[in-house]
Amino acid sequence: MRVSIIGATGYAGAELLRLLYEHPQADIVHITSESHAGEKISSIYPHLRGILDETLESMKEIERIGKDSDFVFIALPHGHAMAAGKALEGEGTRIIDLGADYRFSDTAVYEAWYGVRHTHKDAPRVYGLAELNREAIRSAKIIGNAGCYTTASILALAPLAKSHLIDMGSIIVDAKSGASGAGRSAKQANLLSELYDSFKAYGVAQHRHTPEIEQAMTVLSGEPCVLSFTPHLVPMSRGILATCYARLKDGVEQEMVDAAYGKMYGKEYFVRLLGRGGYPATKDVRGSNFCDIAWHIDERTRRVVVLSAIDNLVKGAAGQAVQNFNIACGFDEKLGLDHIAVYP
């Protein structure tokens, strides 16, 4: 398959390059960057020297790029993918957007949380969380790749919501991410001297991944979901650990919770169940497309506490996109993704 990457110089774009270069069924034909057009990608990322020395182009010629590509991966901040999607809607090219433009079924929600007018409201899009929407992804024209915090949180809570084991109004998600989740742009808050030996929350009660998690929980449970989500920044480069809390419904026993996870993920390769009482760690999934999940039940408070660990740049971004690509092409989902985590 001929593939192109729009926005190849961000962290997610660079991770896409790594995964797609090693993918046996992907041929990278175009890579773009507006800030580095005309430069070689290996001058931006020296680890690619002698491996990928292609010259970065501008996405201004998106129609030509689309004509040359079976799939276009868009790794740009929100607000940019919908213009590319609209420009390519008459082409046979399929799109996988790693940003937020195509994640919401209701564009009014997107506009309210992102503060941007949606210019491609009628786009035929599918939410790209493989374990939830596999069948729809197979034939989708546009796949809105799930976000990083949302992937960890939704996968953690999905069995409970789908099996109606929890009070949908009681969900709290407390998640921690490495600094790469904030992108590659220079920001004072992400300087080593600011991050090192520190730990802080941000975006409290207003983080844009909140409605994305709520959307998935509502679809899974059939009940409206409003939850509390608080992200934190920790001094590591990559990884997310989400700690999710919910109150169990009356009559729900521990074995019912165990069974719900086994039923939903028992045959999923990229979701590894550590079981009741387990402790996932970001180090155990670093550089891989795995999501490790465990759960604890607090009988005293009647709460279930679910722990979920992913690499935010792989399962939370580029790896998820390649998994969606594999599904859309009819390939084995593990193709180009069957990597062991980098340890230690």
Rank of each mutant, 00 (worst) to 15 (best):
S237K: 05
C225D: 07
Y245G: 08
I96R: 00
A317N: 06
G10M: 01
H296P: 02
K60A: 09
I95M: 01
R300C: 05
H78F: 11
I240L: 11
P24M: 10
H209I: 03
F331T: 02
L233F: 05
R286E: 15
A152T: 06
E39C: 04
K121P: 12
C244S: 15
V305P: 13
R117M: 11
G13M: 00
R125K: 14
V252A: 08
G275A: 09
Q206P: 04
R238T: 15
M217V: 01
A189S: 07
T243H: 11
G316P: 14
I172F: 14
S288D: 07
Y11F: 11
R18E: 11
V204W: 06
I154V: 15
L48K: 04
E253Y: 03
M264R: 10
R64I: 04
N312Q: 13
A87T: 06
Y114K: 01
M1N: 02
R94T: 14
Y110P: 01
D106K: 03
D27F: 02
M168T: 15
A294S: 15
S163A: 15
L56W: 02
L241K: 09
A179T: 13
K86A: 11
K200R: 15
V304I: 07
L16R: 07
G266F: 03
E212Q: 09
L52N: 15
R2E: 06
I41R: 02
V305M: 12
A81M: 04
K141I: 02
E34W: 00
G181V: 02
D284T: 11
A81W: 01
M256S: 12
H164P: 00
I310C: 10
E214T: 00
H232D: 10
M217N: 03
N324Y: 05
P280R: 00
S139T: 14
G319I: 11
D332S: 10
D122P: 04
A75L: 03
S163F: 10
S221C: 10
L273R: 03
F229K: 07
I28K: 01
I74V: 15
S193Q: 10
